[in-house]
Amino acid sequence: MNVLIYLVPIALTLGFVGLVAFVWSLRSGQFDDLDGAASRVLFDDDVDDRKT
């Protein structure tokens, strides 16, 4: 069972990284315009500023 000593922290850290990434994307306004984001991925110009 010694394997738990590092497996559990790894599992928790990975989950926590996901949570932080989500909160960051929420803060940076990536959930403000879901319909637009779905179409923007198809545009070629990636030059516009990303933070809104």
Binding site: D33, D35, G36
Partner: peptide, 12 residues
């Protein structure tokens, strides 16, 4: 800056 919000048809 010119940003369209397509979900609610607004321009900032």
């Amino acid at each position: 800056k010119a940003r369209i919000n397509y979900s609610n048809s607004r321009l900032a």
